[in-house]
Design a protein around this nucleic acid. Structure first.
Lengths: 204, 204
DNA sequence: ACGTCACCTAAGCGCTTGCTTAGTTTCGCT
DNA sequence: AGCGAAACTAAGCAAGCGCTTAGGTGACGT
């Protein structure tokens, strides 16, 4: 194999239930090595279980990926919807939703990497289900842009395309962020909220 | 395995040399399934060779990934530098470089996915070498922003952070783009060039 | 005609994979 | 105390993995 020396730290069972520990372990391994390069033995060892112990809680490795991916998408969607609801204006809504989204992609970059990059490796049915949640995430931002344009606050040519570009900026945070980076997730969130507002503001 | 039915189309040797055919085949397979999920037998079959034929041209699967990754990075860097050199002003330079970069990430989205997402699976030495090219890519945009700020054309608080956000938008194109999408790579490039200019323009 | 060398393949080696099976331990409940 | 279910493990299976080896084949210079 091309990755010969894989150092495996001793298992530290942090979660309370075995199921949670397995998900935490799998997030670390999947985000490090990718879904297909991670073995069920890697995950079991990190969760403090025998290789067979995984299958007590999840019927397959792919189901473990699905559980993680679902958790992540639902968490992100809820954060976005809450931020959007609490905002007094479209400008503020855009700033806080994008800020929240970007902050999450930094703070929980390992979860986010699994959510964003291992998603294509889900089975067909699971992938379809997650796609529905993705559309809702998209709609949160898209609706804010539509409202802002209607109120004359935003200058946007193509709302779906701009929604995509704004979310792209935030999603990509999890690609380059890691724990050694000095900027705090909060400040990254603030910056990206501000950048999003700039993107849709009328040209000076 | 979790991907039981993998339909393998008959090999169509499009490239001229076997080495080129192998790289083309590997780009398709790596971008579809990921580096670790792709077998050397998959690649060989698509290139019209026996499994052992791969090793006549590349010493290992990881070396094949490196060759592809290097090609992609150098191509992207050259396109950026050319676009930057030809531009008459920082505004035009930013528009065309980001536009070119985004267009490439759509047009060659399979190459781009390998370049961006399989990069972490390179061996240590190869990864370090590629990192040097990435810094040059970053510098192209960063230098344009610095010049634009100096000339009073751009309003940017944090040049490295803004460089990163602009490149993020363009890089992320390869995550969602595929051949069924209606927008042409050219129009995506134009849009993203325009969005980049908006991001750095003084607030209205 | 002959040797050379690059290119390519059939066969297979040693190892790892996801997952199963058969059995043991632990725990809540009566 | 005793029991049934749930949690867990040791052992291992069939399949697939990256890569090697030994050998064949055809183009080319001489």
């Amino acid at each position: 194999m091309s990755l010969p020396t894989r150092r495996r730290p001793p298992p530290r069972p942090s979660g309370s239930t075995a199921s949670e520990r397995l998900k935490e372990a799998a997030i670390i391994e999947f985000s490090d090595r990718g879904f297909h390069a991670t073995t069920t033995r890697d995950i079991a060892a990190r969760a403090g279980l025998s290789p067979a112990g995984v299958y007590v809680h999840f019927p397959s490795k792919e189901d473990l990926l699905y559980a993680i991916t679902l958790d992540g998408h639902l968490a992100a969607l809820e954060m976005l919807q809450e931020a959007a609801t609490d905002a007094p204006s479209p400008v503020e809504a855009l700033r806080t939703t994008v800020g929240t989204f970007a902050q999450w992609h930094a703070e929980r970059f390992q979860d986010a990497r699994v959510v964003q990059y291992e998603f294509p490796h889900l089975g067909h049915e699971h992938r379809e289900h997650i796609l529905g949640i993705r559309k809702q995430i998209n709609a949160v931002v898209s609706d804010i842009l539509t409202l802002g344009v209607a109120e004359g606050l935003f200058d946007v040519d193509d709302i779906p395309a701009t929604t995509l570009a704004i979310l792209s900026m935030a999603v990509d945070v999890c690609r380059w962020y890691d724990s050694e980076i000095k900027r705090s997730p909060e400040s990254i969130g603030n910056d990206y909220g501000e950048l999003a507002v700039r993107l849709v503001s009328a040209r000076g």
